[in-house]
Structures are given as structure tokens and as C-alpha cells.
């Protein structure tokens, strides 16, 4: 349980948000040309990192906007929050 600083609304309780999983997974541009292995990689395989992870969140019970977050999954500390389309912070 933690507080999330929504880039649109400010600091709110985590229970107002829903997590959309790993960020920056790019939808294949030419889906018809993908092999089964590539589909599996896109659909199912996840980094599932213990440590600093980039992920998508949605302020479901607030502004309902999506944004990205950098969070350490080993202690739930949030390092950065940035809007969709912005470059992920380099650290």
C-alpha cells in the first residue's frame, strides 16, 4: 500500500488506481508477419523484475487517465511518475 502522485491530480491513495502491468511493450506493427514465438513474447512473457520496474497505471477512481511509473517492486518505493508519450527517465 502506498501513495501515488498522479501527474494530473496529485497525491492519492493507491487503492484509487489500477495497474496496467509492464510499460513500454510495443504492439507489433505488422501483426500478420509475427511467428508464434514472437506472439508469445508480446502477449505473455514478462520481465517481472524484483527491483526497479517501469509500469503503466490508470487513475481509475479519479481522472481515469493513464500514465507511467517507475517503482521498486522489492520495497514499493516510487522513483518517478511521467505522462504517456514522455520519455522514461534514465537512471
Amino acid at each position: 500500500m502506498f501513495l501515488i502522485n498522479c501527474p494530473y491530480c496529485g497525491e492519492r491513495d493507491q487503492s484509487e488506481f489500477s495497474c496496467g502491468g509492464e510499460a513500454h511493450i510495443i504492439r507489433p506493427k505488422q501483426p500478420t508477419e509475427l511467428s508464434d514465438d514472437q506472439w508469445a513474447e508480446y502477449l505473455f512473457m514478462r520481465k517481472n523484475i524484483k527491483g526497479v520496474q517501469f509500469e503503466r497505471w490508470n487513475h481509475a477512481h479519479g481522472c481515469r487517465k493513464w500514465f507511467n511509473m517507475v517503482r521498486d517492486t522489492s520495497n514499493d518505493k516510487i522513483h518517478a511518475v511521467y505522462k504517456m508519450g514522455e520519455k522514461p527517465p534514465v537512471e
Binding site: 500500500m1 487503492s15 517492486t73
Partner: peptide
């Protein structure tokens, strides 16, 4: 909890 975490705690809600 509906997010990845290795903290062995979990949220109150």
C-alpha cells in the same frame, strides 16, 4: 494485489 510486488505485505483495501 493487482500489481507486481515482492514485499510480502499487500494492501489494506
Amino acid at each position: 494485489d493487482a500489481y507486481v510486488s515482492y514485499t510480502q505485505r499487500g494492501s489494506h483495501d
